[in-house]
Amino acid sequence: MDTQTWDALVASMKKAYAADLAQGSAPRPVIMPLVRGELVGLIRLRPAEVGQDAVTAIVELSNVAAAAGADEVVLAWDTQNVAAECGLPVVGPAPCLNLVHATKDGHVLHQLPCAYESGDSSPEGRGPVEPRWLSAPGPQPGGELAPPVQAALTYSFTPLDLDHPSPFGVTVLLMEDDGYAVHLTDTFAL
């Protein structure tokens, strides 16, 4: 992936993270598969119950990447949200937007820690929460990942064995039916 694409994905994820916080929502994990440097799209986690369902939902993010034959993926998540939803300990800075860039040969973890600040107050006395980005550690090749995130990366590069004339198309439709928000780029639109 070239630097311009990486920078655009990071900026997009920071903007989405801030928008979720401003709306009072916890940022949900997002996977962005790429094929030969072309972004396939963004797949956002479906609503999930705390515990095993959340773990399964994160792992299932890999389905579109696997069906597309992705050679790279970027997965973004919030440290605290994934830990709370999956019943796991918090590992690493929190709050923190994490982005991992992976290929079948390995991954590099990028952490963007932040502090939450209240925005302008509403008449009720509460304002939206906004991230204030803190100094980020350098990229971490092979950095420690939450187990469901690691599994999602592994399965992203495991070919799906679907007996269907359009494995990519049927996978996208099934993911949407399950509640995942799937936004494909024009190149990969069905």
Rank of each mutant, 00 (worst) to 15 (best):
G142W: 06
T171Q: 06
G138S: 12
A11C: 01
A57E: 08
G41L: 08
Q52I: 06
P128E: 15
L88F: 01
M32H: 09
G127M: 06
A146I: 01
L174D: 15
A26Q: 12
L173C: 09
P137G: 06
K104M: 13
P131R: 05
S25R: 14
G119K: 10
T56R: 15
E124I: 12
P113G: 07
E176F: 00
E144M: 13
Q111G: 00
P93N: 12
C86H: 04
A66I: 05
L109D: 06
P47G: 07
D186W: 00
G51Q: 05
C114Y: 14
A115Y: 00
I43P: 03
Q140L: 15
C96N: 12
E144T: 14
D178T: 04
Y116D: 13
L75G: 02
H101P: 00
V182E: 06
V55K: 10
V182Q: 03
T185E: 13
R46N: 06
P165E: 11
V100K: 11
A8E: 15
A102E: 11
L112I: 03
H183D: 15
L174K: 14
G125V: 05
M32L: 12
D105A: 13
N98C: 13
L174C: 11
A18T: 09
T171R: 03
L109A: 04
Q52A: 13
P148F: 05
V10A: 10
V50Y: 00
L145H: 07
T3C: 04
G69A: 07
L61D: 10
L173K: 15
D161V: 07
V64Y: 00
P137H: 02
V10L: 12
D2Q: 13
L21D: 03
P147C: 10
L153Q: 04
R44K: 15
Q150T: 02
Q111N: 06
S118H: 06
M32S: 14
E130V: 11
L112C: 02
Y116N: 14
L75P: 02
E130T: 10
A57H: 04
L160F: 00
T79G: 05
S156V: 03
A102I: 08
A102H: 07
D53P: 03
L145V: 05
V73M: 07
V108G: 03
I31W: 02
W77S: 07
